Simulated scan of single mutants.
Amino acid sequence: MTRVSGSWLEAKGTQLVMKTLEEAGFEAFAVGGCVRNALLGEPVADVDISTSARPEDVLKLAKASGLKAIPTGIDHGTITVVANGEPYEVTTYRADVETDGRRAVVRFAQTMKEDAIRRDFTMNALYADRHGLIKDPLGGLEDLRARRFRFIQDAQTRIREDYLRILRYFRFTAWYGNPEAGVDPEALAAIAENLDGLDHLSRERVGAELCKLFAAPDPTVAVSVMEQTGVLHRIMPGATTRALGPLIIHEQSMALGPDALRRMAATGFFDGAALRLSKQAQKQLALLQCRISDSKGLPEIAWRDGGAVAQDVAVLRAAMLEMPLASDTEAQIQAGTQAQFPVTAKDLMPHLQGPALGKALTKLQRFWIASGFTLQKEALLKLLNQEG
Rank of each mutant, 00 (worst) to 15 (best):
E22Q: 13
A319M: 03
E10F: 03
R234Y: 05
H233F: 03
G272N: 05
Y93R: 09
R145S: 07
T173D: 07
L348R: 08
M264V: 10
D120R: 09
L21C: 06
F341N: 15
K363T: 13
V82D: 01
L277I: 04
L167K: 11
I191K: 01
K363V: 02
M349V: 02
A274M: 05
T329G: 06
L232N: 12
Q353A: 15
I369D: 00
V31K: 10
L285K: 04
F341I: 15
V315L: 04
E142S: 10
L244M: 14
P355T: 02
Q338M: 10
F121S: 09
A319P: 01
G140E: 03
V225Q: 10
D312S: 14
V313T: 14
R147F: 02
I74Q: 06
A274E: 02
P217I: 13
A30P: 07
N194H: 08
Q386A: 05
M323C: 06
V44C: 09
V309W: 00
V106E: 11
T99S: 14
G41Y: 08
D199Y: 08
H76M: 07
E42W: 12
E193P: 01
Q334M: 10
Q376W: 08
A216E: 13
A308H: 08
R147L: 04
Q376L: 09
E27I: 09
A260I: 09
S202P: 10
F270N: 04
D100I: 12
M18V: 03
A286Y: 02
T173F: 08
G139F: 01
A281Q: 12
D100A: 09
E114R: 01
